[in-house]
Nucleic acid binder design. Structure first.
Length: 152
DNA sequence: GCCAACGTTGGC
DNA sequence: GCCAACGTTGGC
């Protein structure tokens, strides 16, 4: 069982939006970064745990927990010329971009801010706290996962 | 294959 | 809104 962190902008689609979806589940479309794509396509498995992280907002924070509800399948928004995330180089018979379905589990009892995470030596290896990090999907060591939950 | 230009991410 | 960091593009 792997552990992950996935970023989302609460102004676009936040943890509360996820919780209010049918089955509390949402296709995590729009990932257009190869490193993130490779993890989504090749490594994420059903029932893997996910931290939901709010980025690009007043207080960037880990806000909740989700699980992988469906393993990788082609991201249809890449095929739709009308869509914001359209990519003409992704072909139906050779999809370039993939997505998973993510299901809400629970919100944290308190949001844990990036600023707080940055101060923890236990998390120095976490990609999220490293300067210039732009990955929207990243693995989280089990030890770090447990440590972050202990801050709750 | 190099690298400058450009676009995007995302904290602050 | 600013800007550093980083990824992608495309000319050569």
């Amino acid at each position: 069982m792997k552990h992950w962190l996935m970023k989302t902008e609460p102004g676009e689609f936040g943890i509360d939006d996820l919780a209010s979806r049918p089955n509390q589940t949402e296709p995590w479309d729009g990932v257009r970064n190869y490193q993130a794509r490779n993890m989504i396509r090749d490594e994420m498995k059903t029932n893997d745990w996910v931290f939901i992280y709010h980025s690009n907002c007043e207080m960037p924070s880990i806000v909740g927990i989700a699980r992988i509800a469906r393993e990788a399948y082609p991201d249809p928004t890449a095929f739709d010329p009308q869509h914001k995330h359209f990519d003409s180089s992704s072909q139906l018979d050779n999809p370039r971009w993939y997505m998973v379905d993510v299901q809400f589990v629970r919100k944290l009892t308190r949001s844990i801010a990036l600023a707080e995470l940055k101060g923890k030596p236990e998390l120095s290896g976490l990609a999220l706290v490293r300067k210039g990090n732009r990955l929207s999907v990243m693995p989280v060591d089990e030890a770090m996962w447990d440590f972050i939950l202990s801050l709750e």
